[in-house]
Nucleic acid binder design. Structure first.
Length: 109
DNA sequence: TGCTTGACATAAT
DNA sequence: CATTATGCCAAGC
């Protein structure tokens, strides 16, 4: 199985209205630490793949700006359409929208 | 075939 | 969470 396939599977598992970071996806995909490949996998991902790639953001909960097109805007729109709220800095409050599947990553203060 | 770049993360400063 | 440096895998040239 390609590493990409695992990544896609994990991304597909992200609940609607929730977001996950590249690092988290990488960890869940078994690519612990290889967050870069997650982003690259999504980059190579076709638009019609049905994968909710827009639910994947960087560590700051912000939509990463890529070299190509205005897909970043699209990603924001898609997330907002799912109920995800962006603050004035264009970032997501991970404390509320972070996809918690791993208690290890959650920090209940 | 080999080097550079890329939707990032983490540790150190 | 600021910046800088390093690591990882795959794709492009």
């Amino acid at each position: 199985m390609s590493r990409y396939a695992v990544i896609y599977r994990v991304v597909s598992r992200i609940p609607r209205g929730r977001v996950a970071t590249y690092g988290q996806v990488a960890e869940l995909a078994g690519l612990d630490g290889h967050a870069r490949q997650v982003g690259y996998a999504l980059h190579a991902l076709p638009s019609a793949s049905g994968i909710p790639w827009h639910r994947v953001v960087n560590s700051f909960g912000e939509v990463s700006k890529r070299s190509d097109s205005d897909s970043d805007e699209l990603q924001v729109e898609l997330l907002r359409a799912e109920g995800v709220v962006f603050d004035t800095a264009g970032r997501i409050d991970l404390r509320r929208f972070r996809w918690r599947v791993r208690a290890k990553l959650t920090r209940p203060t």
